[in-house]
């Protein structure tokens, strides 16, 4: 009897709370709307400003590229008092970003939620693993560019990209490419793009995915031949004469003592580039005034000295694009990726 009593009181209290909770959240929303309308009315004078703390979502776990970008920019923005409101970073980890994007899709119309993303927001939906793609959000600004590199062991027989691709044209099965992520994602696609431009049969490329730094290990011990990855991942190995870089994916050579020694594919006669851009997005239907506000803030961030330090520590490059330009860039990029995935038979 007692037990039943305990259970039923528990249930009753919950029902009561849930009812109160519903009202509470409603009234909160009302308040928020009130404030928004106030601001909107004041918009003619000074434009939109955030009225509450801003939530910055990293659609990945702590410590990765998205998380670092989110934390470092939030810190720079608030510490340099470019934005007066608090900025909290929230990790929505899982499914290569899809969990975070689904969460952001629920924030439709909010002006106080932002998130970080890069190429996967184009690739993951194309692979059929996310309902949401960049079209479902408001691109605000791109701030960072990373470039890919194709590295081989120091004693490998190839000295440049053309030698490698010559061998691959003869026998694609003789060369193993290794990357960190699965086929159809960045490491794979960036290599495929260059191989395609050089005329290799891309459907026959042997690609192995090896997480937990397996890629560099496998190239160092000779299990795999070519490591397709980001420039920063291999720079130190090159400096120590363990690896050599056949090509970087950027348009021009990169800055830096070691980085500037890496040849671009372009100068080797392969007309292709690949940028791993990284930027900020807002939910769908964000107030255009708010978009403009954030756009300006990210421009300020991108130009700031504090962020320049962050960039140089992480080996990131500056690449600013405003909302309009960004959106157009993303649309084009997606078409491009789509055709490659189609050819590989990876399109869902």
């Amino acid at each position: 009897m007692k037990k039943l009593l305990a259970l039923s009181i528990f249930l009753l209290m919950l029902l009561f709370l849930a009812a109160c909770g519903g009202e509470d959240t409603l009234s909160n929303d009302d308040n928020a709307n009130d404030e928004d309308t106030k601001e909107n009315s004041g918009e003619d004078n000074g434009g939109w400003t955030p009225s509450e703390s801003i939530e910055m979502v990293a659609p990945a776990g702590a410590g990765g590229g998205w998380d670092t970008t989110a934390r470092m920019s939030a810190q720079a923005l608030t510490e340099e008092s470019m934005i007066d409101q608090d900025m909290g970073v929230v990790n929505k980890e899982g499914a290569g970003g899809a969990i975070g994007w689904a969460y952001m899709a629920e924030q439709e119309g909010s002006n106080h939620d932002l998130f970080v993303s890069s190429s996967p927001i184009l690739l993951v939906p194309l692979n059929g693993q996310s309902e949401y793609g960049h079209e479902d959000f408001t691109p605000i600004a791109n701030v960072i560019a990373d470039y890919g590199a194709f590295a081989v062991a120091e004693d490998a027989k190839w000295d440049n990209l053309n030698e490698l691709f010559e061998d691959m044209k003869e026998d694609p099965q003789s060369v193993t490419i290794v990357g960190t992520s699965a086929p159809g994602s960045m490491d794979h696609i960036q290599f495929v793009r260059f191989a395609k431009a050089a005329g290799v049969d891309i459907t026959k490329i042997k690609y192995v995915s090896a997480p937990d730094a397996g890629g560099v290990t496998q190239v160092l011990n000779g299990s795999a031949d070519v490591f397709s990855t980001g420039v920063a991942e291999v720079a130190e190995q090159v400096r120590a004469d363990k690896l050599k870089v056949l090509a970087v994916t950027s348009e021009e050579r990169l800055d830096g003592e070691v980085l500037s020694t890496f040849p671009t594919a372009k100068e080797q006669g392969i007309d292709e580039t690949f940028v791993n851009w990284r930027g900020f997005f807002g939910p769908k239907d964000m107030d255009p005034a708010a978009v403009e506000y954030y756009e300006n803030k990210f421009k300020e961030l991108s130009d700031s000295e504090a962020f320049a330090d962050v960039r140089s520590n992480y080996g990131w490059n500056e690449m600013y694009m405003g909302s309009e330009e960004y959106k157009q860039f993303l649309d084009e990029e997606k078409e491009n990726l789509k055709s490659i995935l189609e050819e590989l038979g990876l399109l869902e």
């Binding site: 007692k2 037990k3 305990a6 259970l7 009181i9 528990f10 209290m13 919950l14």
Partner: peptide, 11 residues
């Protein structure tokens, strides 16, 4: 609520 009622429920 959970900790309280679960303990109570278990006696």
């Amino acid at each position: 609520l959970f900790v309280y009622f679960c303990s109570w429920f278990l006696g």
